[in-house]
């Protein structure tokens, strides 16, 4: 189930993380340790802080208190090169955020070429291989507005993978999709999990979380109220808030 503590550092270690937007305290002391190859699913109602947590880990939001460590290196320390850190941490957004003025191939090769300094030919060969693996190679010269939502999101995943990240953050990546397109995207994530990718996934797809997660964390009021194996969280939640949340999900027919 959860990996044993090895001599190496955990893939991700968050301790006492605080974050506010003005008066609104979104994160109020998050502690989370993720071992290599673990798949963590963050569940919780909208506004519980799932997205903010992921954006903090990618340093897209400055944190106010606490520490984030990636493989032993503190990324919240002052003076770290945020660009170098971000190259190691991929993030996929709810709204895809592909670059609309670039072809699929260019979307995928931009960062490997410009941020990682790879030669064009190498970046394109690697991108083509990834697109092939996820069934998108025939779309390599299309522009994003010619693709379905599911295809766009798969391209966004490939774009993040092209930087060969140690850690992948997925922020409600199926929430903007038509229901019949959700499966193709989730299957990509399943394949990545089988391949051993370390992932932190904010999601509303409880069935998917139960299938794929090594650990499920329930966020409520800016803290991780409860965490454990999916079977425990979904079948025997300890906290009253978790029970309430899951009851509402079941009522809505989402579990």
């Amino acid at each position: 189930m959860s990996s044993t503590a090895a001599a190496t550092h955990p893939a991700l270690e968050i301790s006492g993380l605080w974050k506010s937007f003005g008066e609104l305290r979104v994160l109020r002391g998050i502690d989370l340790t993720v071992a290599e190859h673990e798949v963590i699913c963050l569940i919780g109602s909208s506004g519980s802080g799932k997205s903010t947590l992921l954006r903090c880990v990618n340093l897209l939001e400055p944190v106010e208190g606490g520490r984030i460590t990636v493989e032993g290196e503190e990324i919240t320390a002052s003076g770290v090169d945020v660009n170098r850190i971000r190259r190691r941490i991929g993030i996929v957004f709810q709204s895809f955020n592909l670059f609309p003025h670039m072809s699929v191939l260019r979307n995928v090769t931009l960062a490997p070429q410009k941020a990682a300094g790879k030669p064009k030919a190498q970046a394109e060969a690697e991108a083509t291989e990834l697109l092939e693996r996820f069934g998108l190679v025939d779309k390599r010269n299309e522009y994003p507005d010619r693709l379905s939502g599911g295809q766009q999101q798969r391209v966004a995943i490939v774009r993040a993978l092209a930087m060969q990240p140690d850690l992948l953050l997925l922020d409600e990546i199926t929430s903007a999709l038509d229901p019949e397109l959700v499966a193709e995207v989730l299957n990509v994530i399943r394949e990545l999990a089988r391949g051993g990718m370390t992932m932190v996934i904010a999601t509303h797809e409880m069935g998917f979380a139960r299938d794929i997660a090594s650990r499920v964390c329930f966020l409520d009021g800016g803290v991780i109220l409860e965490q454990g194996a999916p079977a425990d969280i979904f079948s025997h939640p300890r906290e009253a808030r978790t029970q309430q949340f899951l009851e509402r999900i079941i009522e809505a027919g989402r579990l």
Partner: peptide
């Protein structure tokens, strides 16, 4: 702004 966020998240600098 999500376009800049996407670019920065991949490790591109602000200028890039």
């Amino acid at each position: 702004p999500s376009q800049e966020a996407a670019a920065r998240s991949l490790g591109l600098t602000r200028i890039q």
